[in-house]
Simulated assay, not measured.
Amino acid sequence: MNSIQAGRLSRFEGRIAGFGTKAGPRLVIGMWERSPFGRFADVMVESDSGHRLLMAPSEAVAEYVSSTYTFDEVQVVEVRFGQATGGEGAGGDLARRIRISAGPLEVTLQIGGPTAVGRLLRSVPRAFAVHPVWLQAIDPVARMLVPGARTSGSAGGGRREFYGVTRARAITAVDATWEGSALGGVQRLEPPVTFGFGSAPATPTLVDIVTTIRERA
């Protein structure tokens, strides 16, 4: 526990969507409601040839994210996200349709019900689910339950990162274009993306998440 508390903690609260497309590109989209940079979204794209692109909304976000993960190219572009028209779930619950735009990319996600892991998460109190000590302890279990996924690992630059997922729902459909050309329907996130120490789940998934990064002491 002492090693985890050694440095300042930066906390990002929001959602991450991970999915593949029939045209080849695989995407991981972070939509952050609360963070040291305020409300923002960033988009990570890996092509079928392995080229890794980050699209970020500001130089500050681009610098921070690219020092945490690994990319072949970084672009600062306008990145927007929000609920698509008619997208609200029952009782004002999590949006059923989410729209993201970033430079040449336009995406609308159709969100379904909880995944198997999402149902398991209901039994974990939120205070445990997002705590770095817990996330470090359960990392080996998380890797077995969701191949490619991690809850704790190195974040580059001497940082340590912890992923606390509190909810997981299936992405059932994707309408995406790149410079106006359709990317095709949603596919599994295979092979795993290689931006950092772990990948998003292979099954297209939207997760509610608290990401905690322990800065270098």
Rank of each mutant, 00 (worst) to 15 (best):
R97H: 10
L109Y: 03
G30V: 02
P57E: 00
I98K: 06
T151E: 03
Q136V: 01
G180Q: 00
R26I: 02
R80S: 11
I29F: 04
I100S: 00
I100W: 06
A84C: 07
L206T: 02
Y69V: 07
G198K: 06
F81D: 12
F128P: 02
A41S: 15
V65R: 11
E78S: 13
R119D: 06
F40L: 14
H51I: 06
R96Y: 00
P36G: 02
T177W: 05
E46I: 03
R143N: 00
D139V: 02
F37Y: 13
S154F: 04
V65N: 08
G87E: 10
R119G: 11
A168L: 04
R34W: 07
E190Q: 13
A17C: 09
S181D: 13
V79N: 01
G157Q: 10
S123M: 09
G180D: 09
A182Q: 09
D175R: 10
A41Y: 07
P36W: 03
A127Q: 12
L135E: 08
G198M: 12
T68S: 15
T70Y: 12
T85S: 13
S10A: 14
Q75T: 00
Y163D: 12
G20V: 06
V146K: 06
P125K: 02
I100A: 05
A6C: 04
Q136M: 12
L189D: 05
R169K: 07
V186S: 09
G196I: 02
I138M: 04
V174K: 03
E190N: 11
L183Q: 09
V76L: 08
S35H: 05
T68N: 10
G91S: 01
Q75N: 07
H131R: 14
T211R: 13
S58L: 13
L189V: 09
T115D: 07
I4V: 15
A168V: 08
E179P: 08
T194Q: 13
V141M: 14
I209V: 15
